[in-house]
């Protein structure tokens, strides 16, 4: 059965390949899929999954689901932002960390939780979260 890939699927595959979606690639995709660049950019900026900028080596996904909120995710966010000197959605200057708050990681029983790349950290406190980040940074320095 022939399957026409939707624009979203094309973008997902490209991001999977490159880690993010550079503008040039968007133009290329527009040409290849017969969509206007405006439409491609419109789709790429609508969904939170798509990134037009590269992310840091460590992508921190901080859960801001309801359970995490109730259990103190706001404090975690403040502490992480303060520690890294970046805001939600940004990457540290050294390219080491990116912070992204997400709606729900689906591990509500571990709340408040965050994921750094593929590892999940649960039952956090601001101090624990900061310690984890410092450990990673220390590991990088060595």
């Amino acid at each position: 059965m022939s399957e026409k890939k939707s624009l979203i699927t094309v973008l997902q595959e490209k991001q999977e390949e490159l880690g993010y979606l550079p503008m040039d690639e968007l133009y290329k995709i527009a040409e290849e899929t017969g969509n206007s660049p405006a439409r491609v950019l419109g789709v790429a900026t609508f969904y939170t999954q798509f990134r037009l900028q590269p992310v840091g080596k460590y992508l921190i996904m901080l859960c801001k689901g309801t359970a995490c909120h109730v259990n103190g995710a706001d404090g975690l966010e403040k502490a992480i932002c303060e520690e890294l000197g970046i805001a939600d959605g940004d990457t540290t200057e050294d390219g080491l960390f990116s912070l992204k708050t997400v709606a729900c990681l689906g591990c509500c029983s571990l709340s408040p939780a965050m994921m750094i790349n593929d590892d999940t950290y649960g039952s956090l406190t601001p101090a624990k979260a900061v310690a984890i980040l410092r450990d990673i940074r220390k590991g990088e320095v060595q």
Partner: peptide, 10 residues
């Protein structure tokens, strides 16, 4: 048919 304008962001 040109679609030069588009919504960006959400």
């Amino acid at each position: 048919g040109k679609e030069l304008l588009g919504l960006v962001g959400r």
